[in-house]
Design a protein around this nucleic acid. Structure first.
Lengths: 220, 220
DNA sequence: GGTTGTCCCAAACGTCCGTATAGTATCGGG
DNA sequence: CCCGATACTATACGGACGTTTGGGACAACC
């Protein structure tokens, strides 16, 4: 028996580091899923209600949430909306014993990865979770890159940002100068500072960074 | 009564130019939907089977497909897959009388806009179609821009493309020259040609175009 | 009061970019 | 065979870029 997810050694099931958060009011279901996911090397967290989940801290690790639609207090769909509003974008796999089509459609529209009817085959659940975790990994990687970038952008002064926006729009230094009301030489300084702070080693890189940051087009 | 979508005058229902393609084996359903959509200013096409739809030419206009899941011959889901394989990316709204959750989930995963159970309220169908048409408009606009771009890229010679790829990666002319095995001056020529043919008026623009084209990173 | 940070400008220098001019070479079609 | 397209190169020049050096001004903070 291995201890998956503890060290650098990879378990036989290549689950790497990932956590599955299970929310269901039925203890039997929770424990059944718990053993299922542990057997393939996932870490798990069990919750009996949405409130319990919201109270707990969400571990900083790729993973997903498995959610029963019928839950004490708010429904699974409400919880999905609540999480989205809180900026928590962990992929969700729904399951239900008494669901209907509109419910499943609403969940999928809101970004759910899958929606399984009970009883489901273990393999279907494992497939859904694998897809969800994969999506979360991708999302985290992108979020990470975007945050690093945003952090660097925060260090720019107001002027430097202004100049950067105009520069990545394709304007020449002298045009930027005329636009903002500065001398060309000053624009060059700000431009150089922006390049250094953004760690862009070429204009092309700076343009791509601006794209990822969603910088606005310069006004007028 | 107005004649929507005929001239420049906007109809009371702002449907602009859009077409709704209805596929259902039940003639009563077809005609009911037909009159519903005509009443709000959409053009319509009626088909009784998937084969009939595939045989007909798809009009070059924003719109969507309304599809019954149960159809003579292939099922609606099969048709959805078939259309995707053919590169036809028109948004699909499903409807069904005897559907189940796995069916709806599969459809939504494959990109369906909505999945309505019969009987549905007219307003739900109109909302779904409005969303679908909006999505199609957006998709067409992007596809149009991408195609224009690709057309211009096709006019580049092999060398010009090679140089462009290296330039948008942020390399200096002399570096590109060393990489490909040319003199710097030759690189400048190809670079200038690429800029002109791509109608890019700044390096920033060229970088963005390369991004949209999904140009590969230069090897080595 | 001194320090720190931001903002602004100028002169100067070296590098890089873009284009024009001019010449050589290859290949395929009319 | 000539023409056109493509490719490659060289010289030369004007303009754009980037940085350094050296200022002046203002506000915040200790």
């Amino acid at each position: 028996m291995m201890k998956p997810g503890q060290g650098g050694a990879a378990p036989s099931q290549p689950a790497a580091e990932a956590i599955v958060i299970i929310v269901d009011d039925d203890a039997a279901v929770r424990e059944s899923l718990d053993s299922l996911f542990r057997s393939v090397g996932f870490a798990t967290r069990l919750h009996a209600s949405p409130a319990e989940l919201l109270g707990a801290s969400i571990p900083e690790m790729p993973g997903c949430i498995i959610l029963d639609v019928r839950l004490p207090g708010a429904s699974g769909l409400d919880l999905q909306a609540e999480l989205a509003r809180s900026g928590i974008a962990v992929p969700i796999v729904f399951m239900t014993g008494y669901g209907d089509i509109p419910m499943s459609v609403r969940a999928m529209k809101a970004g759910a990865v899958d929606f399984l009817s009970k009883p489901f085959r273990d393999q279907d659940m494992l497939d859904a979770v694998a897809a969800a975790v994969g999506r979360d990994r991708q999302r985290r990687k992108e979020a990470q890159a975007a945050n690093d970038l945003r952090g660097r952008y925060e260090t720019l002064t107001a002027r430097e940002r202004e100049v950067m926006i105009h520069v990545v729009a394709g304007l020449m230094n002298k045009q930027v100068a005329g636009m903002i009301g500065l001398s060309e030489i000053t624009v060059k300084i700000h431009r150089g500072n922006a390049m250094r702070k953004m760690q862009a080693r070429s204009l092309a890189e700076l343009v791509r960074q601006a794209e990822l940051l969603g910088l606005p087009r310069p006004p007028s």
